[in-house]
Design a protein around this nucleic acid. Structure first.
Lengths: 183, 183
DNA sequence: TGTACATCAGTGAACGCGCGTTCACTGATGTAC
DNA sequence: TGTACATCAGTGAACGCGCGTTCACTGATGTAC
């Protein structure tokens, strides 16, 4: 039974949204096409009316996830100012809530490990997202203008590293890593 | 054809060594029991004379990989002194060589993302390895004794984060991340 | 020390399973007149 | 505006594939006498 064009667009959005969360929650391999479609309220057969391959869904889901966190940082900066907004985002990044809820968290920390077997184009989407986050964090850095980019890069490497190591470790180790990085 | 006990021990070592490198190179999912056994010069059927499950192999391979990097740090410290030895290890960690050769590199950076679906005991092995690395780096930290542990933790989070993000990104982004973290 | 037998490391075929993808089909939507 | 037909979003069964694991088997090793 064919559905209207608007309905199809809604379906597409639901599929990407499901993938965006499920990817961060379960990872690339455990995010099956059938599970994503089921979460979006459909069956797996219709998937290929929207995407040529799972690979294409990964790009869409990953980009959507990066969009989410970028706009979160921008909202924080708009509300609290550059310096405090970025500081607040960093504190949130290292919180237990973020470590425990990857589905609504940073895709860089959630999916870095899954890029190992990714195509060049997916790695570009990932690298591009990382650069966008770093550029957003740069606004909250102090010190000489020319060092801010490198400083934001180091800061983000620590944030993402801490969360990735914490998520990979037993709860006790996780706690000490996050606490140490919160300063 | 049964082999001698010494031969079996050699087989075990070869299996763990193969797994240790292949895990870091390809990740947990892509490291099939058959591929590990083949790399060790055997066929997959004999695997279960050494391990009860793939899970058990993961623990052995991961622990062996952590042992490798710990002894590398200790060798650096023994040769160049605590401060310079750790500095040298950090520089090596952020090198293009390390980013390009996960099979002989840090298992924390190589496998953090793969712990998502790991058992509690495997996560403990991972967390334990991370703590051992941090403890080894602590010897090269400066400042008040009581802050050194946290400092080493932050330093390692940045190192591992930088390498994980670099490996996940396109080559251009990877280069800028590693360069920024090298100071 | 020699012999007879039990053990078991390693082989290779087979299993059940979940995956990405394909396909014939359905019937509502979109379009041409 | 109304009608007839083509299109195509979504369904559900089926495919081929690689995986972890099991299993009957082989024959050298280890052991009991």
């Amino acid at each position: 039974m064919r559905v209207s064009r608007e309905e199809k667009d809604r379906s597409y959005e639901k599929i990407v949204e499901s993938a965006s969360g499920m990817l961060r929650e379960r990872g690339v391999e455990a995010t099956s096409v059938a599970a994503v479609m089921s979460a979006a309220g459909m069956t797996h057969g219709g998937f290929y009316r929207h995407f040529d391959s799972k690979e294409e869904l990964l790009t869409a889901g990953l980009t959507s996830a990066f969009d989410e966190v970028i706009s979160m940082i921008e909202r924080k900066i708009a509300g609290d100012g550059a310096s405090e907004g970025v500081d607040g985002y960093c504190a949130l990044y290292l919180s237990r809530e973020h470590a425990a809820n990857p589905a609504i968290g940073c895709p860089a920390a959630a999916l870095a490990g899954d890029m190992r077997h990714a195509s060049e184009s997916l790695r570009e989407a990932f690298g591009g997202g990382v650069q966008r986050i770093i550029a957003a964090l740069e606004a909250g850095m102090k010190g000489p203008m020319k060092d801010r980019r490198a400083k934001a890069t180091r800061e983000f490497a620590m944030l993402a590293g801490a969360v990735m190591l914490a998520r990979a470790s037993d709860p006790k180790t996780a706690k000490t890593i996050l606490a140490a990085c919160r300063d």
